[in-house]
Design a protein around this nucleic acid. Sequence first.
DNA 1: ATATAATAAGACTAATAAGGTCATGTAAGT
DNA 2: ACTTACATGACCTTATTAGTCTTATTATAT
Lengths: 128, 128
Amino acid sequence: MFKLSRAGEYALRGVVYIASKNVDDAVHVAEIAKCQNVPEYFLVKVFSRLVRNGIIHSIRGNKGGFRLSKKPENISVYDIITAVEGPLNLNDCFICKNSSKCKMKPVWDEAKEKMMEVLKQHNIADVA
Amino acid sequence: MFKLSRAGEYALRGVVYIASKNVDDAVHVAEIAKCQNVPEYFLVKVFSRLVRNGIIHSIRGNKGGFRLSKKPENISVYDIITAVEGPLNLNDCFICKNSSKCKMKPVWDEAKEKMMEVLKQHNIADVA
DNA sequence: ATATAATAAGACTAATAAGGTCATGTAAGT
DNA sequence: ACTTACATGACCTTATTAGTCTTATTATAT
């Protein structure tokens, strides 16, 4: 019920890595993959989701790479996870779907809310 | 990252069903499966985990079935989910495993804690 | 005692989702 | 132009979840 995907983990580690190298040059995905020991092609795919969600931005071509779009302290753990895994909703329970007054739905919503709060409170500067 | 399994959902619905029939007779799994529109064999398996974890108890043989081990108000949503899915731990991140000082671990722990709290606060009597 | 009705447990299969790879395209710097 | 690097989507592989079936075991009723 509560497990981070590899994609989410790689995204976090990748962003932390970029943040840690506070250089003006963009960082190559190949370098990140190698240093973090994650599959490069897969990381490319994960990063593309971060780009689409405005968390990092890419520079193509020679001397290209990735750079953070905002300061590390303005990127929350929540931002990264939802960018990669999509919005956190598990409310596809049978009862929810078939009745507007499913008694479990408020419980899920509350649990999700509390969890999201924590993930929003922590940013990349904290965990780098 | 946050999704209830079918097993978890069936378990919840099954327990709620038993609670709703406040009779002294044990309730057959076949009846529950039929009324809840859930695969019977699968529900048997799910229920066996609830038995092992002391949430319901079983009466075998003719006129057998399942009965709650405690009052509905003493069975939390958390109890049922962890009985069926095992303990909620997602802390198998690469960094956690390879370093005792993984900066993400406290975040996961806190998020998990907050979520568990909510699930513990709600019981079967609430959601029945 | 025996037949019957129920759960127990685990092997097995099917379906779905996650993880990973690859080929082709596009953009930018030299 | 050529090289280097990201973009994208198709594809394959592996792992997990969901579901089924078979063979016990247990208890009740007759």
